[in-house]
Every structure is written in C-alpha cells, then in structure tokens.
Design a protein around this nucleic acid. Structure first.
Lengths: 225, 225
DNA sequence: CGTTGTTTTTGAACACGTTCATTTCTTTGA
DNA sequence: TCAAAGAAATGAACGTGTTCAAAAACAACG
C-alpha cells in the first residue's frame, strides 16, 4: 500500500461515488440503477458493491462528504456570530445553500421516517452523522446569552436539530420557484422560536413547560442503541 | 354477474387481502413476498395484481377496510362526548386499540415522509383516506365549546390530524412493553394541547399566534393537487 | 524471478415486485 | 344450446438491488 500518493483503491472509490452522484442528479435516486452507475464509473457492478454496501450507502457517503466540506464554514459561522438566532440562521442557511445543487437527491435521505431504515435520519446507521450535526447546535447554544429552563435545556440542541430537519424536509419538497416558501417558513418560524424561548421563563407558562420537560426525558431516555 | 350472493370475484379479492395480512403479520411488510401471499391465497401471482395494483395497494386496502370498521364506533364517540379533549382522547385511543393487532404492519404505512411516495400519509394516493380522517376532527372541533383564534381555526382539524399522526408514529415504533410510553406521551401532550388552546387567546401571546396564522395559510395554500 | 497471500474486480445468478400475452372460466343474447 | 364477448386467472419474463464464487491484479518475501 502506497503512502505517498493516493492509493489506487481510493481513486476507484471516488470515481464510483462521483459517477453515482452524476447519475442520481440525472435520473433521481429511484430511477438511477446500480448498473448505470457502475457503467458510468467504468467498473463492473460488483466493484460498486465492494466499496459501498448498498445503493443507500452511496447517498450516505455523499452526506458525509458534504458534512466535511461544510465543517470549516460552520465553525466560522459559530465564531463570527454570538446570538443564538444569528447562529441558527447561519447554520441552516449555509446547509440549504450547500445542498441546493443536490436538493433532489436529498429527498432520498429524508424520505424515510422509519428509524429502522438505514437511510432514515433517526436510524442507528446515521447516528454518527446525526451526532456530528447535533454537536454544532450544542456549540450554538452553549455560550449564547439565552436563558433556558433547566428542565428543557439538556434537550435543546437535539430539539434544534429536529427543527432544522423540519426545515430541510419542507425545503426538499418545496417546489415554489427558488424555494421561496421555505425561506418564508424559515424566517417566520425562527422568530417564533426565539420568542418562545424568551417567554419560556414566565411563570404563566409553567404548566406547559413542566410536563414538556418530563416528556422529553422519557422520549430521549433510551436514545442509546 | 350474480346479484343475490356475493360475486365470486369479491370472494377472491377478499381471500387475497386476508392472505396478505396473514403473511404481513407473520413476516412483516418488507419480508413478505407477493409470491408467498399469492400462494397463501391459492392463486397465481398475476391474480394478486389483477385485484391490487401493487404490494403497497394491499396495505392501503387494509387501512381503508379498517377505516370502515371504525366508522360506527367513531360516530358513537363523537356523539357521546362533548368536550374536544374527550373526543380527541376517544378517537385516538380507539384507533390505537383497533390497530393494535397489526401495529407492526402499520409501520409500512408510516415509513415514508416523501409526499410523492404512494404509501406516504401525505401523498395524492392517500388523499381520500386522509380527508375522511380529517373530517372526524372537523366534527370533533365544530360544536365543542373551544374558542379558537380565527387565524388558526380553519386549520385546526388538519393540525389535529397531524397531531394524531405523530402519536401513531411514535406508537408504531414504541417498543416499550404494551406501548406504555405512547400512553404517557398521549396523555401528557393532550393536556398540553388543551392548555395551549385555552391560553391562545391571551394578548400576551399574540406575537406568536399571528405569524402562526400567516404560516399556516402559506403551508396549506396549494394543498389541492 | 517465482511463490504465496492479499486486495481488487468480474459478471453470472438470485429473489424480488411487476408486466403482459395467453389461457380458462363465466356471462350474455338469440 | 351454442357462439361470442367479457371477466378472471395463469405463469413466464423483465428489470431491479444484491450476493458470491471465481479470476485478475497487486504486494511481499526469499
């Protein structure tokens, strides 16, 4: 195994992934066939399966690659802004912008709710990706000036991740020109979200936030699988 | 075509649907094969496709059948209770109870978010089922004493349907013994929901409910497809 | 260079959902 | 009662994602 230059197998792997994205973009995830992907990468079908466990795995590899590509900008966004609102707006807008050319492909990644489906955002298989994403929201919350009820605080990063998933989901299937509606949804819900967090402390709403805390504890209880 | 007794084709259709449910329960939706279903119904594969357009269609037929079976009880529930809370508790509990023996199969019906997937609760193909379900929530809201902000009121039935979908979704993948956690989630969220509706009128929360109304108008704008 | 072990590549084969030309059964009309 | 038309049922065949035994390419070592 060479250590100086890029190993040949890495090149083949990259070529297959590139070919896959090419075909996915052309035909969409469902219509794309592994045979065409393999042909487009000048390998036999078996080779594609030697590097990627499944068709789904190709999409996951794409997402992981994108995550790496976004890492630097994400860090910059967190550093250059200091309110939670700015940070959320920055992180989520950045993600949408970055995925825009592959928006249609993203529907394959958000098509499944079933946590047992490998491609589901809630599956064991995507846990490491999810954890990395949640970490950004943890950082976004941590040294911002927001005051959060202690019962909800531990879950806030994961709730924000869920919020982001919701926005992405709407975006993926938003066929308004330029996905303008998503923009509107995002701006409005973000303001509502910030407002909700601000008034969460008022004793008036205590009977709402107390059971919420209990619920969250239960729901996230056996998260480890 | 005989008109006195049940037509033979209806019998065959029913036999195939029964066989399908049998195999689904045994193997789960994904593991069940059309060949086994056909064999279990003593017909050729082609016959199954003569009566049902696809494997998915079998699950949809099951849901429609269930909907009919529940219709009487649902009407009774709406008649015998008069607060929105009682009605919601009644309708949703009834649904969970009725689907309990086929809980695992239900995961096939809730596995897809993609509104373009035929089996998705948001698809065109399931629109008529959805509309029928929403109608019950409309009736549940209509002559109850709840006061709702006019900006949100038109969407309340559909929002309640969404709430019900959320509960069902959690239930389907809830592997706590007897789905106790779903019970807890339902009871707590129902109380929170009623409380939210009650305090929605207070002017304090106006900056929250006003944009909510605008959002709902946008999101549900091009619902007709 | 030749041998041996490992990594990479191949493509036939499998099981699946689905299609469709064909056959078999049933109904209709005189 | 029979012929024709329509409805119901058949199963081979297609294209799909995926598997796997075998071959080819490569690496390590004496």
């Amino acid at each position: 195994m060479k250590t100086l230059s890029i190993p040949k197998s890495e090149v083949t792997r990259a070529r297959i992934l590139e070919a896959a994205l090419r075909v996915f973009r052309e035909r969409g995830f469902d219509q794309a066939t592994m045979r065409e992907i393999a042909a487009s990468a000048n390998v036999a079908i078996g080779a594609a399966y030697y590097y990627f466990a499944s068709k789904d795995a190709l999409v996951m590899a794409f997402y992981e690659q994108a995550q790496q590509e976004m890492a630097l900008d994400d860090a910059r966004i967190l550093d250059s802004s200091h309110t939670l609102e700015e940070r959320l707006r920055g992180l989520i807008t950045h993600k949408l912008t970055h995925f825009a050319p592959n928006r249609v492909l993203m529907s394959a990644l958000s098509a499944h709710i079933d946590p047992r489906h490998p491609l589901s955002p809630f599956s064991r298989e995507t846990a490491h990706i999810r954890d990395r994403d949640v970490a950004y929201f943890t950082r976004a919350v941590n040294d911002s000036k927001i005051k959060i009820a202690t019962s909800v605080a531990p879950f806030l990063p994961r709730l924000l991740w869920l919020y982001q998933m919701g926005i992405m989901l709407y975006w993926v299937y938003d066929d308004s020109p330029g996905q303008k509606r998503t923009q509107l949804l995002f701006e409005k819900t973000l303001q509502m979200l910030m407002l909700s967090l601000k008034i969460a402390g008022v004793p008036f709403l205590r009977p709402l936030y107390q059971p919420a805390g209990e619920l969250l504890r239960m729901v996230y209880a056996e998260e480890r699988n």
